[in-house]
Nucleic acid binder design. Structure first.
Lengths: 255, 255
DNA sequence: CGAGTAATTGATCGCTGTCAACCATGGTGG
DNA sequence: CCACCATGGTTGACAGCGATCAATTACTCG
């Protein structure tokens, strides 16, 4: 799944220019000077599914962007419970700036390709290139918004609503995901980008309950189960009804 | 509860200088030029408990800071369910920049004094004063972190843990709250800054279950109920145990 | 002091987590 | 090629937490 992207040496600005996220996210609207700086301090890295990029409690030394694949932001409680507080798709930024310690783990949910930078170097870049700082501000604003939308889902939706919302999310985010070659959406077909366990952890439920609700949606002819990972959306309107909430919540955070 | 703060005319820089949050939050480290700009575009406003400052769905025309009192950021579902996705205490910033529509309501949870600005004016200020933008970035980073911590609480903690966490939160945030005259903490006494309904909406539960867990903590001699709003913390260690999670989560977002 | 609201307490029910068994899939090695 | 195993997903039985409805008590404010 990961693309064979060569690790360019510093100063090889062509790398950033070829990058499929180079004009999006925090790299958006970057002039040559900015792009050169980012190119200089970043490097490309491949991770296989399950790999931990940043461990909760560790020194938060790196930040970066997702180029391909899906990362998850998770927190584990001492007794083993785990909550996924965010999924990161291509163009998304990860890492905590201006903090020494990582409160969350960043893990690869699928095989992934990422662009990493040392935190200090990136902070330095922020402080010297207003465009980057501004992009970060925009990105953080919309991430905060999304996080709060998800809090509504976690705090007062039942599992059927949660699962329906997740389908709806995939449906609406499909455009964004198409920047990579992953076929999350083909016609009215969506694909789960991650396994059941992670989806359950994201929705604040268990794999069993999740499974039951998926089967229920299938019996209701709202979706058709193609295989364990692919689903055809048969009735989008009813799906959004099940999802409760107004559909506005699905608007992906614009950056 | 609100202080009699006169509404100063634009250009009266003395107002910002007298403001009890003027050197914190987004106003931190502001030089005269910046402070003057903020002073120019902002105005002080008093709100009584329950008042809506910004309605979800409305045009998101204003942003601001809490000077005194507590605001809540809420989302209501069509069927009446409500989730509070954030509480705003003095020095906290509210409002959504770079978005035309408000996805959440901002309401006064208590009588409050706030400092409001037109969104466009503030965005203009951001773009021309790097210090403000940087402060915003820092503030947003830590708010995102806090939001994610709360997602863990909503997604995988039971009500006893939620309630204990809320007590712990008040305990740890007490310092910050002391910038106002509200006696949230006096010795080992904490005060609920908002009513039961709002706490329940914040914790993703109901007033009934909330009440039962408070009584349980009382029977366990972890807290002592002084009156409906004031509680003495008898056993801080056990409280934090009940709260589960590592206590790091309580670290208030630094700004 | 009375009315209205807020908070507590009680009884009941259903959703969902837990534990367990079963099934499907894919990879491995004999 | 197939038996074997590991992993991931589904299905079933059951119990417990917490929501709901209802009733009572406490508080606040004219």
């Amino acid at each position: 799944m990961t693309h064979p992207i060569r690790t360019a040496s510093a100063g090889d600005m062509a790398r950033c220019e070829r990058c499929n996220v180079h004009n999006r996210g925090i790299c958006g609207h970057a002039n040559d000077s900015v792009l050169n700086e980012l190119n200089h301090i970043s490097r490309i890295r491949s991770c296989s599914a399950g790999e931990t990029i940043l461990a909760q409690g560790d020194d938060a030394g790196i930040v970066g962007n997702v180029i391909d694949g899906v990362l998850k932001i998770t927190k584990s409680l001492p007794d083993g419970r785990e909550q996924i507080v965010g999924l990161l798709f291509p163009t998304d930024f990860f890492g905590r700036i201006y903090s020494n310690i990582a409160d969350f783990s960043i893990e690869a949910a699928t095989d992934a390709t990422i662009c990493v930078m040392k935190r200090e170097a990136f902070e330095h870049a922020i402080e010297h290139h207003n465009a980057i700082e501004h992009n970060m501000l925009i990105q953080l604003s919309s991430e905060l918004e999304s996080a709060r939308e998800w809090m509504v889902l976690l705090g007062c939706q039942n599992t059927l609503e949660k699962v329906s919302s997740f389908f709806a999310l995939l449906l609406l985010r499909a455009d964004k995901l198409c920047v990579s070659s992953l076929p999350y959406k083909q016609g009215v077909v969506v694909a789960f980008p991650i396994n059941r366990h992670d989806i359950a952890a994201y929705l604040g439920t268990t794999v069993e309950t999740l499974s039951r609700q998926i089967q229920y949606l299938s019996r209701q002819k709202v979706i058709k189960i193609l295989d364990g990972k692919h689903f055809e959306i048969l009735d989008e309107d009813r799906l959004l009804e099940f999802a409760g909430q107004d559909r506005e919540f699905l608007h992906p955070a614009k950056s």
